[in-house]
Amino acid sequence: MSISVLLANLPYLFQGAVVTLWLAFIVVTAGTLLGAIVGTIASGGGRILRAIVTAYVFIFRGIPVLVVMFLGFYTFPALGIRLSAYAAVTISMIVYVGAFVTEAVRGAIAAVPAGQVAAAKSLGMRRLTMLREVVLPQAARLAIAPILNISLMAIKQTSYASVVGAWELSFAAREIVERTLAAFQIFLGVMMIYFLICYPISLLANFCERKLSFDH
């Protein structure tokens, strides 16, 4: 069993990794942004708004990302919108990730102690000021760990994009395996590449958490 087959195909895998990185970056950034906005609005909004957001969260948490991608891939053309496989996958995943982040943000905001809110109110703060000065800075720290988990999950889920024909790292790997039949070596390499993408993000999240802790 020679490792040379992996080395020979490494440049091709790296091309796939670059696409995976881009896809992951866009999905995680936009999904987190979407979830942060929706989660914040929902935690302050009225009953109807909260019900809509709850429905959004529960629906997307209840279906596999693979199904969401197929839905995205076939729904847009049905509506007369022509999208590339990449665009369909990206949009589907943003909405999917957004649902998880929404719930994480809503939970983090709810976990800010009631006393902090009472103190902010007693200083005469109105809702937006309170959100900006007290609630969001404290909720941000609580939300980092769950958002990290969601992000790592999303990065790995980009590998499903290949099912609708979006070429990325996993797709590239399967192509090479079909040609070389060296499944073990190639997927060993793929495994390491995914790890090298995910590990620095864990470190970054740890750093952010330390940076935002209040007892320095």
Partner: peptide, 12 residues
């Protein structure tokens, strides 16, 4: 002005 039993200083 209000002073609470549990202080409620902004921890951040």
């Amino acid at each position: 002005g209000m002073v609470f039993q549990s202080f409620n200083l902004f921890s951040h």
